[in-house]
Nucleic acid binder design. Structure first.
Lengths: 336, 336
DNA sequence: TTGCGAAATGACAACGTTGTCATTTCGTTA
DNA sequence: TAACGAAATGACAACGTTGTCATTTCGCAA
């Protein structure tokens, strides 16, 4: 019978109701084995009857920790869902909850702003999800007592970072083309300010240069299919274009549609690779070969890194989660 | 100069360093106007020098509130990003942070489980994101002192709920077909257990029955394009099929591809409408008319509902966020 | 029954803040 | 200069929990 007209039920209330001491109630919760069974039952009944719930604030005040990891979302994109999913699952598994704040659209938020805000909240450590450049990236110093992990492809001087190996993924795709006999690879980029796009472009460039190939001018896209289509129309007119790497699957699809509309066939005339491996959800019998990143794994790693560093917040590490090339049939083998 | 070898810097440390009382430091933070400027400066310098940050636990313990809203993710799908985005933005705007937990894959979690877990965390109110049925939905009672809002299309006996008007959206799409002279509408569903799919189907059925039309057997899909393609192949053989409503855009695209492969044209032979309006991202020059829900708005409403109910947790309301029909050219007007 | 070590329980302080109320300091007016 | 009310500051308790250490109770051997 929950009768409580009063405010909150404290351990003391439970103790009185059960006819035991405050400390015994505490023990029933934290070290049940040290309490006689009959006593435990009395206390449990009292807790039930009064609707007792431990007070988070008092508990954390005493313990000096919260059991929460802060997550700052500077940017919330498609892949972010899976990453959050990974973070949340890993947190759950290790007994942590998440405390989340987000950069508002239009607002300018530096790493220092985020750290200041977070350090007033219930967190033992924090994760920043950073997909675009931010002003104070290089100068930022994390609070010395709060382990901080940044999810970003850039290396940071003092903080641990975790990232997809976007550059490696792009290189892998490029080499795949080259190993299949292609002599050159065109590139369609995503939005300029996106670090993902920048890294993918960097990897593409590096792979070509490593073979002594001069990278052609990249085509600027904006992640959406229409921009890929526009790029495809341009590429269709280039006789030396046999291979196109698009910075995501949507644009890759745009490219393919444009090529088809120009009377070219994929992969017979032109080969195409995309990123993220999500076209199959939208296109039946999709043939697009694509570089897939394990966003979920990324989140898991980030959380584990934070938890591992709770005791030594100033430790620093760099984690790269490799991508996977999901092979379908959009690349033609030009050898022999 | 932050020298702190010690553990945490408390207001008391600041007070001593600044040569004032503990309470004055507190005032500098919470009611700066009541402190003489010279004193305020001394205190600020001391805070700076020692690297003071207010202790969340102590503060909330005294205040009896946290300034955090709990979010329980029972299910993390595509549309959830935008919803979380809305929740987070609205929270930020009202000065709240979010505390998040998530149902782990495979784990069974009831509303009661979630409420129990959450009520041990720093939250003043909570939001459940519930997209599938759960065992204790009807019997669940929220903690009396914790405003609880459930994001779900179902009505709940005691809790406030917020939802997209999925049923209304489906009805709207159906009526659009009928108003354009179509005599019947076929339906391709999403995964069976999804409440969204169920509601969309319900709306479709209701719209037809309201005009005295016997709804044909719905085709079972799984949200992905391939299942839509399979459905499309079946529908292509039905001479009376002039209109298809697919429970999402991916399946709608699958349907369209199948129709095309069978030599039928959209919209000349068959008209199609989808849900979520996301095909344009993947398909260049997309023609698909689609029902779009405002997930972001949904999140904003949910958060506002929680905040509004903080003082009166037992209040109850039901909010429906209407969908919008985004017209393109995949529906043919059969009249005249 | 007594005595003893181990197990179970309890009293009290402490965590770092804010609210209450008392005290000091200040600027003005008589 | 004294007296006064207002402004500024301070002393102390309280929020609800857990750690420390003291005390009580228990089970069992003598």
């Amino acid at each position: 019978m929950a009768t409580m007209d009063k405010k909150n039920v404290s351990m003391n209330d439970v103790a009185i109701a059960a006819g035991v001491s405050l400390k015994t109630v505490s023990r029933v919760i934290n070290e049940p084995d040290s309490v006689r069974e009959s006593t435990r039952d009395k206390v449990h009944s009292a807790m039930e009857a009064l609707g007792f719930r431990t007070n988070f604030a008092a508990r954390s005040l005493k313990l000096g920790r919260y059991g929460c990891i802060g997550v700052v979302l500077f940017h919330l994109s498609g892949g972010a869902v899976d990453m959050i999913d990974g973070i949340a699952d890993a947190a759950e598994e290790r007994g942590f909850a998440l405390t989340m704040i987000k950069k508002r659209a239009g607002e300018k938020m530096t790493l220092a702003d985020a750290a200041r805000r977070m350090s007033q909240l219930p967190v033992d450590g924090m994760i920043f999800n950073l997909r675009q450049m931010v002003d104070d990236f290089d100068t930022f110093e994390a609070p010395k007592d709060l382990k901080t992990v940044i999810i970003t492809p850039m290396e940071h001087p003092t903080c641990s970072t975790v990232s997809d190996d976007q550059e490696g993924g792009a290189r892998m795709a490029c080499e795949y083309f080259l190993n299949h006999g292609h002599k050159n690879v065109y590139f369609v980029s995503g939005k300029k300010e996106s670090l993902s796009s920048q890294c993918r472009m960097k990897g593409w460039r590096a792979a070509l240069e490593a073979r002594g190939i001069e990278p052609p001018e990249p085509l600027q896209g904006d992640w959406n299919a229409d921009s890929g289509y526009a790029a495809g129309l341009v590429l269709a007119d280039k006789p030396d274009c046999t291979a196109v790497l698009a910075a995501n699957d949507c644009m890759a699809n745009g490219v393919m549609m444009a090529l088809r509309d120009k009377g070219l066939s994929v992969p017979n005339d032109v080969s195409v690779i995309g990123f993220d491996d999500e076209l199959y959800k939208t296109i039946p019998n999709s043939i697009l070969t694509s570089v897939k990143f394990r966003h979920r794994e990324l989140g898991v790693r980030a959380l584990n890194e934070v938890v591992a560093g709770l005791e030594a917040p100033s430790s620093r590490s760099r984690t790269l989660v490799s991508g996977v090339l999901v092979e379908r049939s959009s690349v033609k083998d030009l050898r022999a």
